[in-house]
Design a protein around this nucleic acid. Structure first.
Length: 466
RNA sequence: GUCCCCAUCGUCUAGUGGCCUAGGACGCUGGCCUCUCACGCCGGUAACGGGGGUUCAAAUCCCCCUGGGGACGCCA
């Protein structure tokens, strides 16, 4: 049994977007599930469009998702000699040749072919000229003129394309850099890849790569092409559709496990199961259940999953995240213990950590800086409730206990004595303590706020109602 | 234009010839719970693109059509 080796080869010309993250996840899962190795490779042969900053962003995204790699990151830009070795070999074995045509000439061939309804491709003018190395010359692959090239795809099944569709692709550019197709094949061969799981958009590249494997005399790895992720308009997902990079979701307050869970279910399924722990993913993930049709990125389902994970996450971890987001919103620092007490009240209510931070503001705001919903204050802080609050202030001050149960008992006793329903006082009290008309339950809120804050906010309200 | 791929509720999907008058989940929606908002619970809405075959039997297999996506770079 050979060791499973997979890879994720992003091009550092953009962020780690959700589509890339999903293929990375699939490759990672497959390697981990089979106790194999997962390799990271940076495809930066396009020097002009690649940047170190993008590379770091991609690595950050990977780490955030928890997709650790066993090898790499390898940089293609540092492996040029290796690629040249292989190109020379192809030249020697007659699988490649030098071509002196300029990009403009090639472009003209394509437009001409297109105009006459033919396949737009290089016409092979230098194919049999026997040109040797020289300035202004690229190296092209000598592709078969007839026949078919095919392979068995893990998700799509048998794929085959007439060779007349393929042209003599460039292997080495004018600037001496290898092209993508050559570099991937050389890398995948030398790094011993066993499985190549990648986006559907590479499907039509694969026959060209298959030809290269054959020319090199190397066995094919297993290819698996997963369908694309589309936007709600069913077009290829792009910035137009809103957040597409995984780090954007992190900043929006999504939990990595929610992202992973959402992504894995996009194109893969295990019966009716929706929620997967990492362990479950590792035991259940399979290539056979990868879907074969494109899917739409559905933000609302991601949000639901995130809410789910927030509910089940430990208050301690949430407190850390909460502090971070609160800080970002310019709120003063609060103790970890306090935030850890706040979190459970907000967990069932927050869809994202950004939302939780927003809801947590009244907990951490200074009593005098509490943002008051004025309309609500006018509506609820009436003369009638003022009398009650005045008494309640004393009762709360002298209450022996300040926990939820004690508070509830205190209120019940008071209300029964006055013959008043809690409903009458609930909203006014909520506005006084939180500044808003929506909040967690009053008794738990008071317990967490603590006696001092409650008393000060009550006193402030009393003063206001003078 | 050519080639390749795809096709079940609005969305993600289950379904591998009979268990399907098509199941789950998100969303939307009715109700319950209730100090507000949520959570939760119960219920509802909604799909096999069309046409031909094959078969005793088709969402499932084959063909055509239609629709969608992708690729045709000295980008990856």
């Amino acid at each position: 049994m050979t060791t499973v080796i997979t890879r994720f080869p992003p091009s550092p010309t953009g962020h780690l977007h959700v589509g890339g993250a999903r293929t990375a996840l699939f490759n990672w899962l497959w390697a981990r599930k089979n106790s194999g190795r997962f390799t990271l490779r940076i495809e930066d042969t396009d020097a002009a469009r690649s940047s170190e900053e993008m590379t770091q962003g991609i690595l950050d995204g990977m780490r955030w998702l928890g997709l650790d790699w066993d090898e790499g990151p390898y940089y293609q830009s540092r492996r040029i000699d290796l690629y040249n070795e292989y190109i020379d070999r192809l030249l020697q074995t007659g699988h490649a040749y030098y071509c002196a045509c300029t990009p403009e000439e090639v472009e003209a061939m394509r437009t001409q072919a297109r105009a006459s309804g033919a396949v737009p491709k290089y016409n092979g003018r230098c194919r049999d000229k026997g040109l040797t190395s020289g300035p202004g010359r690229v190296v092209r692959f000598k592709a078969p003129l007839s026949g078919e090239t095919g392979f068995l795809d893990l998700v799509k099944g048998p794929i085959s394309v007439p060779n007349t569709q393929l042209d003599d692709m460039v292997l080495r550019r004018l600037d001496g850099m290898p092209t993508y197709n050559l570099a991937v094949v050389v890398d995948d061969v030398t790094m011993n890849m066993t499985h190549i799981i990648r986006g559907d958009d590479h499907l039509s590249n694969t026959p060209k790569q298959v030809l290269l494997y054959e020319a090199l005399g190397r066995p094919l790895p297993q290819f698996g092409h997963v369908p694309m992720i589309l936007g709600p308009d069913k077009k290829k997902l792009s910035k137009r559709h809103g957040a597409t990079s995984v780090t954007a979701y992190r900043d929006l307050g999504y939990l990595p496990e929610a992202m992973v869970n959402y992504l894995v279910r996009l194109g893969w399924s295990h019966g009716d199961q929706e929620i997967f722990s990492l362990d479950e993913l590792l035991t259940h993930f399979s290539l056979e259940h990868l879907g074969s049709s494109a899917c739409v990125f559905d933000q609302s389902k991601l949000l639901w999953l995130n809410a789910h994970y927030i509910k089940s996450e430990s208050p301690a971890r949430l407190a850390g995240l909460l502090a971070e987001h609160l800080g970002r919103r310019g709120q003063p620092e609060s103790g970890a213990a306090y935030l850890e007490a706040v979190a459970p009240l907000l967990q069932p209510r927050a869809g994202t950590m950004v939302e939780m931070a927003e809801m947590a503001e009244f907990f951490v705001a200074g009593d005098d800086e509490l943002v008051m919903d004025e309309a609500a204050a006018t509506k609820f802080l009436t003369a009638q409730v003022k009398e009650h609050f005045a008494v309640l202030h004393f009762l709360l001050r002298d209450a022996p206990g300040f926990d939820q149960a004690a508070l509830e008992a205190l209120f019940t006793r008071y209300l029964e004595g006055k013959g008043v329903a809690f409903k009458i006082l609930a909203q006014p009290l909520r506005v006084v303590l939180t500044g808003k008309t929506k909040s967690p339950g009053l008794f738990e809120t008071m317990e967490v706020l603590g006696r001092d804050r409650v008393l000060r906010r009550l006193a402030n309200a009393l003063r206001r109602m003078e």
